[in-house]
């Protein structure tokens, strides 16, 4: 391929530097590779899940420069220089992120396939809106589907994380009899 202008040009196997979870990776990507493909199949970070790969389900959500995005709809070649956070980037060793703790306490994970994308969405959201209302939480996660939970305990987990800063025991009384 020859450059058609003097702009940035990436031939199909051009090397690209991706910053993922603070670590730089230089690798050759093909023009049609999505960020999801590169994260899962090249960097082997399989915590990011592939669901519909069609922008319909949100499983592949990652943070790009702090914003939640569908990795399945992004060309990797366009992500050079951007800061990417995947679920693997949240915990520090065995110390979990408060949202991860809240997820566990609220029982917000069942099959777990939506969990990474949901947690990342919630992280970006709480950083922007630290004390959200329930309605705001619902809107914030409305781009990721979940069939297991009916979203109820996911909403609970996000509110729990927001209200505690550091997570507290789950408010089980709300629904127990």
């Amino acid at each position: 391929m020859t450059p058609a202008g003097d702009g940035i040009e990436r031939a199909p196997e051009a090397p690209l530097t991706l910053r993922v979870n603070g670590e730089e990776h230089t690798l050759a990507v093909r023009g049609h590779d999505t960020l999801l493909t590169v994260i899962r199949e090249r960097l082997l970070l399989t915590g990011t899940k592939a669901g519909c790969t069609n922008g319909d389900c949100g499983l592949c959500t990652v943070l790009v420069d702090g914003e939640a995005m569908y990795a399945c709809l992004m060309f990797a070649a366009r992500c050079g220089g951007r800061d990417i956070t995947t679920i693997e980037g949240l915990a520090r060793g065995a110390v979990l992120h408060p949202l991860q703790e809240a997820w566990i306490q609220a029982g917000a994970t069942q099959c777990g396939i939506c969990t990474p994308g949901m947690i990342l969405t919630a992280k970006a959201f709480l950083e922007r809106v630290p004390r959200p209302s329930e309605v705001q939480v619902r809107e914030a996660i409305s781009g990721t589907l979940c069939r297991c939970t009916g979203y109820m305990k996911i909403i609970e987990a996000i509110l729990l994380a927001a209200n505690s800063g550091a997570p507290q025991p789950a408010p089980a009384a709300a629904s127990g009899h």
């Binding site: 970070l45 679920i87 979990l96 566990i104 029982g107």
Partner: peptide, 23 residues
């Protein structure tokens, strides 16, 4: 008791392995 799921930590950290994750 309302104990945490036994696989919760795996799942919230993205470590839980699903079929498509097997390489």
């Amino acid at each position: 008791q309302r104990v945490a799921r036994i696989d919760a930590r795996e799942k919230v950290t993205g470590h839980a392995l699903y079929a498509d994750d097997v390489i």
